[in-house]
Write a protein that binds this DNA or RNA. Structure first.
Lengths: 112, 112
DNA sequence: TGACATACCTATCGTCGCAAGGCATAGGCC
DNA sequence: GGCCTATGCCTTGCGACGATAGGTATGTCA
């Protein structure tokens, strides 16, 4: 059983979405590519991951939406609410703490 | 919806189990506590996580087992096979790569 | 016309950590 | 003896979530 492509990615889409939307509002389709580009093509989360996540975060009050039609195509822009900012702060603190702890274990000398 | 306690932990039990067993063979019950101690009580994976994982890794040929009875209690000691070492190398490289990428995105300046 | 990018959405599946149990022996305490 | 805790193994069922694979519609360009 080879490790799946999603190993270690639990929670990462939400972390990145909140991080990127904190800089500027974006719409879903744009976010999918923004994540890919921001990660140097190392991370790709398809629309089937991003759209449900956006809906969920909106329901939770972490994101606010604004609808706009451009060139005959309708876009849904998402921006981070104060609650969303708090959520991101908590998530990123958690992420930093965990990765630091794991790094310590990985690098620990024998019998530590 | 508050983030669950398992956020960011996908694949981590396997990574840590292989890392700790690389130092010395251990049995399941011992591993559960070793992970907790090695992480300074920051990470706890209960037996319901560790035992199935050990069985899986053994089936995959990543771990070898040795049975021993001590003080009337039977223990199953696990050690890492060459295939398990390879697997760990791949996993930890993947982990380092991903965390580095994510850290970059998190710390990126606006409009990066 | 046909192909492709844009832009939204959903349903279903598989994996995996988690909670909650069960079973058995050893040892300490009252 | 009766009871609780620690030790040591195990399994079942649930829920969350990333992955896959679709579906719909408009604009652009060859």
């Amino acid at each position: 059983m080879a490790p799946s492509s999603s190993t270690f990615l639990n929670g990462v889409p939400e972390l990145l979405v909140l991080r990127l939307l904190r800089d500027r509002e974006m719409y879903g389709y744009e976010l999918v590519q923004a994540i890919r580009e921001a990660s140097g093509d190392q991370l790709t989360f398809a629309e089937g991951v991003i759209y449900p996540l956006l809906h969920q975060l909106e329901r939770d009050g972490a994101l606010a939406t604004r609808r706009q039609t451009i060139n005959g195509r309708s876009r849904v822009y998402y921006s981070v609410t104060p609650a969303g900012n708090q959520r991101f702060d908590g998530l990123s603190a958690h992420w930093r703490s965990l990765t630091a702890t794991i790094a310590t274990v990985l690098e620990a000398p024998r019998h530590a």
